[in-house]
Nucleic acid binder design. Sequence first.
DNA 1: AGAATCACG
DNA 2: ACGTACGTGATTCTG
Length: 883
Amino acid sequence: MMGNTRMKIMVIDGNSILNRAFYGIRQLSNHEGLPTNAVYGFLATLFKLREDEKPDRTVVCFDVREKTFRHLKFDSYKATRKGMPDELAAQLPVMKETLDAMGVVRCELAGYEADDLIGTISRKADENGDTCVVVTGDRDSLQLIGGGTTVLLVSTKMGQTTYETYDMEKFRERYGFDPIRLIDLKALMGDASDNIPGVPGIGEKTAMQLLHDFGSLEGVYANLEDEKIKKGARAKLEAGAQSAKDSYWLATIDRNAPLALDVANLPEEHRDEAALYELLTRLEFKNFIKKLGLSGAYTAPRLPELRTQRIQNAAEAFGLLDALTEAGRVFAVIPETLGAMCLLEADTAAMLFADDFADADWDALLRRLFGGAIELVLHDAKPVAAALLARGIQPEGIVFDTCLAAYLLDPTQSGYDLPRVALAYCSTELPELDLDDPAAVSPLGGQEQTEQACARHAGAVRAIYQEAASRVEELGMRKLYYEIELPLMRILAEMETVGCAVAPDELRAFGERLDVRIHELIAQIYRDADGEFNINSPKQLGEVLFEKLHLPAPKKTKTGYSTNVDVLERIAEDHPVVPKILEYRQLTKLKSTYVDGLLKVVSQKDGRIHTHFQQTVTATGRLSSTDPNLQNIPVRTELGRELRRMFVAPDTEHVLIDADYSQIELRVLAHISQDAHMIEAFRSGQDIHAATAAKVYHVPLDEVTPQMRSSCKAVNFGIVYGISDFSLAQDIGVTRKEAGEFIRAYLATYPGVAKYMEDIKENAREKGYVSTLFGRRRALPELKSKNFNIRSFGERVAMNTPIQGTAADIIKIAMVRVHDRLLREGLESRLILQVHDELILEAPKTEQETAMRLLKEEMEAAFVMDAPLVAEAKAGHSWYDTK
DNA sequence: AGAATCACG
DNA sequence: ACGTACGTGATTCTG
């Protein structure tokens, strides 16, 4: 049976591919170069290649890291041979375990490198009449090409992995000689990276020429007197004869390693699904679990079996809710449409669908459920709360939100949807469930499956709750969770529901004005550039500016010329088209992102804009705003600021009230660092940037020039971000050295700040995390990275997060206080927006003065600091008018 | 899907 | 010596 059919065997250089993945990731400065990412990269490569190549068998070869046979002969070789970094080598066991679980054959042999094992396997495969695809990142292996053996070369550039198959033909085309002559080439020119000396003085050019003329190393030495060899080269070849011989031997892959592996009878792959699922779960490689079609069924289920109960009768439903009032916490899964509910208490999950009830009954059921008498635990409650508010139902009784808890416990995750959190907290794979999909809840089909799935989701919410609630306590985040984030969730739901009134006609008119000017600019730009092109395309724009018009190109991105505003401003004087492009950029930004973007999201129902505040996105604890983002409405340029005229009070009986904190982050810095000088500057009510300048320049306050103030303002900002001389120099336009001096002078002025910056880094390194004054945490594994860039980033984050995060905590507290007090005082004013250090209310004019005073008071009293908080409130008909 | 750009604090 | 400020989201182009 064997030997009759040609097998396709894929042989992989495990060390090479793993190393490649590791350094590939490290090249990307904003990626964390964690060794497990390299394992991920390796497996990704393996899966992809097996899909593309469809081999019958796969073998992965590894170096055994001690002495190889080459080391025995050449000490120098051993001394400098590049090994695998220890942290990566530490991943080898788990990787080998994974391969074993997949049923992939592994091959390693003491005293041999992976190269030699691959060479030997490919030779044997060839002898058996099989074909062999060698997968490696190492060009040396190209010498193995021939017979049934081809090489698939893997390379990584800028994090992009590319694959290239080399067969005999391709190699000859590329190199101009046979693959086996690669050895001769190395013998002549050497290889610094592999510490093969070659012939001293012979480089790539000469070596290629020699091989071309004489075919092989032997040929070269047999024809040393040939006239084609120049005198100098001849002398070098004579002197380096022994080195050439040694190098030839060093460069040769051993194809006769004493392998125990029976290449003719490689076993069929048998996957151990349970082990593989467990491993991939531990590694958090969920993609692979999905890709391989594994499921949690292979692990012992962590969640108990639940009974499901379908309720379609109104009396029974109200009875259930009465019973739940007496019971413990109820774990609920409810879609945003409010069209169904799954309520888990003890071991029974009750499932109710709106379609089974009269509208009035369903409404009453929702009111009862959220009436406050039942203690509800939900995952991601805000959308449900907002939907209830939109229906005029007050969402009471939500005592825990597992999504919010998971965010507080680790705010750096990329998302917190229930399946993801369930996997992280209780290794449970949840079935798909879309209760918003009318098909799932229609009486026609799939109901039972939906019930089961829903019960499992509710079960997961309970399991997460049990774990997360205690961890919130353990990490000292009880107040942060129950007194800030959870109440805020409800407030955000209200803000989203209320929305913000807009003036769409004025917005359209503004858009038309922009359009007129944009079209003028397009015509002028085409004329100036002597041709049409897509101005929106940085690629085409770069070609026009820097190739066609020959303007100096000051900077490049990884894909080509940089054409950002910094670059264009530097060359604005050099050609009349540049200022027009700058203006075009500005106007099209305003038009497409703001005018068109905002018009698209004006509600059909009430003509207002309802943003969504994200409470579980940022790593620092700030909110973010989406669909639309109302936290980045232009203000810095006069033209952009015009857009704020479109955000208005709904009628002449109302006003907008806007209050913002003055210098909240610097005040937090002063307080946290306890720097006496900075605290004093704030206490005395001075302009902080001017006061800083007076101290740094040693001049009286009234002699501070605008330039001096401006530089110090830049440093004040830079300090908060974790400054470097280079970036400061870039920002304020001085040399790097001057910027460095400036930072030194600044830190001498505020020694408490200097000490804080050092202390926080050390503290973060020791503990592995930083925290805000209110106990919000952010883990910082980056600080332990060997990669300078990653580590430096970690240090800047360690300096910045406590400041930005504490400021975020403070304004959240202010929001809760403002909201509570408006309620307590029976006012109709409503919070509608938050922009990091700014709160906006919509208020009846009759309440204007009261609300302004209240807003300022609550914001300033949110937290008593040594550098006291100051907030200024202003009122106006539009957001523009509150400046 | 990712890169480039630019809007905000 | 390294490569260069923290945190976001939307739009557009491109492979």
